[in-house]
């Protein structure tokens, strides 16, 4: 079985603070990490590999620095890695990124399973997986928590409007793994050294994928940022327990938390 896992490298959101009053975004600590959901996707791939044997290929589209993300994937247990990196690809919008990734995945054919994260924690795009499925002509299962292989069919536990449900799909298929899925294993020390010293990350350019400049022209523009108001000071209330419980529940309803 061949599994392609799409991995995005992002700036660690924990290192970023948003000052709403000053309407500014500060990067305190410029650390690049594998997008959390993608780590879960990689873990899902490695579990299938452990159970049934599989070749796991990590694929990333990004700056040369994304090499680190792919080395981490190799250290975790991926068998090979491909980085699509090219100056011509800077400033891409979501539709274009999905198109480029789809082109690369086609080049990696034949494959049985394509895994992606459900959503990237920086842009919150939440659309690349579905786009890939459409562009590759694959059936899709999104918001996956657990994957298992049963005969030739993939059994998936997924969230549907917040509730776990079961789905089954024949391969090849695309599955988007939720950031709530089991977190990734830690790479073995020796594998980390190996990933840097001995394993290769193939680098593909726009030209390798036959992409034309017209295809890469962005069509989405930003009209600026909006900052939500500073958190207002809350209220403090006092009273008998039953009434206090009522206050809490009405706040939860108002904020749509229940």
């Amino acid at each position: 079985m061949r599994i392609v896992v799409a991995i995005k490298q992002i700036l660690d959101p924990e290192g970023i603070t948003v000052n709403r009053r000053r309407e500014r975004i500060f990067i305190n600590r410029e650390e690049r990490i594998i997008n959390p959901a993608d780590k879960c996707a990689l873990e899902a791939a490695l579990r299938l590999k452990d159970a049934h044997g599989a070749e796991v290929i990590a694929l990333s589209l990004g700056k040369p620095a994304a090499d680190d993300a792919l080395r981490e994937a190799l250290a975790m247990g991926a068998d090979s890695a491909v980085l699509i990196s090219d100056k011509a690809l800077a400033g891409m919008d979501a539709p274009t990124a999905a198109m480029v990734l789809a082109r690369a995945i086609e080049r990696l054919a034949p494959f049985d399973l394509v895994l992606a994260g459900q959503t990237a924690a920086d842009t919150g795009g939440d659309q690349t997986a579905g786009r890939l499925a459409e562009l590759l002509g694959l059936p899709q299962v999104l918001q996956a928590l657990e994957l298992s292989l049963d005969g030739g069919r993939l059994q998936v536990v997924r969230l549907w409007d917040g509730k776990p449900v079961r789905a089954a799909v024949s391969l090849p298929a695309l599955v988007a793994v939720s950031p709530l899925a089991p977190p990734a294993r830690y790479p073995h020390g020796a594998r980390i050294m190996n990933a840097y010293r001995q394993m290769q990350v193939s680098v593909w350019t726009a030209q390798d994928l036959g992409l034309t400049p017209e295809e890469l022209t962005p069509n989405i523009e930003s009209r600026g940022q909006v900052f939500p108001p500073e958190r207002e000071l809350g209220t403090v209330v006092e009273g008998p327990p039953a009434q206090m419980a009522g206050e809490i529940l009405s706040l939860l309803r108002m904020r749509r938390l229940i």
Partner: peptide, 18 residues
């Protein structure tokens, strides 16, 4: 108006031609 960084701020996006 789309959320960024899990809703810490928002970005206004437009696609003029598509």
């Amino acid at each position: 108006t789309v959320p960024r960084l899990g809703g810490e701020y928002y970005e206004i996006l437009i696609s003029p031609s598509l």
